[in-house]
């Protein structure tokens, strides 16, 4: 029997297994648990509020997955969120007429942050973990400097609209948060880009084997830099939603970078690049939010939440490594 036939058999055996990502089962189980604690969750107000709360993280994670699949990490997104919220409140200065150009300016800032991350990684060859860690510290410093330590002013209603407002009196679902529409649009766009375009396949190629990708003609730098840009732009989007939802503070984005990475890992992304799915990452973000919701119900304080998040991150990566070791070869 040739090794080829063995290969074929092994693959046939693999293909008999269901192909649904296990994260969806985990999410389903958690939602059942939430419903047990709080039967009101089945009401539109219940689950819509849940989705509204999850939207910033889900958007952020959908951007992070681009960097992860391309073989890197983006730790600067939490600080980018903070800077977006602080920057918007400083620039708006309680003037609702400025909303649109401030939002535009924030996206320009996100573009600049992403470009810098990508170019530092591509040209200066700084490992992305370190490059974006440096960016994270720099940006949070900038946010503090800008706000003078304590945030002044508040965000006008016109800005908070995206994160806070709902469309009400709808048939069937009754209410629909604006942030959920934003989430749906961003996710569809990023899902299409990752899983239906040439660009998405090249992001996978670069993360799988950069040397082989370059020898095959893939423009490595362009692909890598654009992945960081996408991640930064989603961070600005998440910042705009969070500013509306939670208001102005200097630690509004704290910890979001690791939550986004955890969501991607829960969704089965390969941490060293080459494999990952936008939809499974969204499931990962919802799962994480569901866990936090449950912890809230149980009445555990914030520090416990962080302990749990850390443990989830480590276990999810350990599980991914275990699966990899036991993969068919």
């Amino acid at each position: 029997m040739s090794s080829e036939t063995q290969d074929l058999n092994a693959v046939r055996a693999r293909r008999r297994l269901p192909r649904i990502n296990p994260i969806w089962f985990v999410l389903a189980a958690l939602i059942v648990a939430i419903i047990v604690y709080n039967p009101n969750f089945v009401q539109p107000v219940g689950y819509m509020n849940f989705l509204k709360r999850a939207a910033p993280l889900a958007i952020l994670a959908a951007g992070q997955i681009y960097v992860i699949v391309s073989g890197g990490f983006d730790l600067s997104v939490g600080s980018t969120i903070t800077l977006t919220v602080i920057g918007s409140s400083m620039l708006l200065n309680n003037n609702p007429d400025a909303t649109w150009w401030v939002i535009l300016l924030m996206y320009a800032m996100g573009l600049a942050i992403g470009l810098t991350n990508g170019l530092v990684v591509s040209i200066l060859k700084v490992p992305s973990l370190i490059a974006t860690l440096g960016m994270m510290i720099t940006l949070s410093g900038l946010a503090l400097m800008w706000s003078g330590g304590a945030p002044r002013g508040y965000l006008p209603e016109s800005f908070r609209y995206f994160g806070r407002a709902n469309i009400t009196d709808l048939p069937l679902i009754n209410i629909l948060p604006i942030s959920l529409i934003v989430l749906a649009v961003v996710v569809c766009l990023l899902w299409w880009l990752m899983h239906r375009t040439n660009y998405g396949r090249l992001v996978h190629a670069v993360g799988d084997n950069p040397r082989a990708a370059v020898l095959a003609g893939v423009p490595l730098m362009r692909v890598r830099v654009s992945a960081f840009v996408i991640s930064s732009l989603t961070a600005v989007t998440a910042g705009i939603l969070l500013g509306g939802f939670a208001g102005v503070s200097t630690d509004v984005g704290r910890g979001f970078e690791l939550q986004a990475i955890t969501a991607a890992v829960l969704g089965g992304a390969q941490l060293l690049g080459g494999r990952g799915s936008v939809s499974a990452t969204i499931a990962g973000a919802l799962t994480l939010t569901a866990i936090f919701t449950l912890l809230n119900f149980v009445g555990l304080p914030q520090p416990v939440r962080e302990v749990v998040q850390g443990l989830i991150l480590i276990s999810a990566v350990a599980y991914a490594m275990y699966r990899r070791r036991h993969a068919v070869h």
Binding site: R201, H204, A205, D208, R211, A212, A213, L215, G274
Partner: peptide
């Protein structure tokens, strides 16, 4: 392996 293939694709 090192220069030709994208093993996971």
């Amino acid at each position: 392996k090192a220069e030709g293939l994208l093993l996971m694709q």
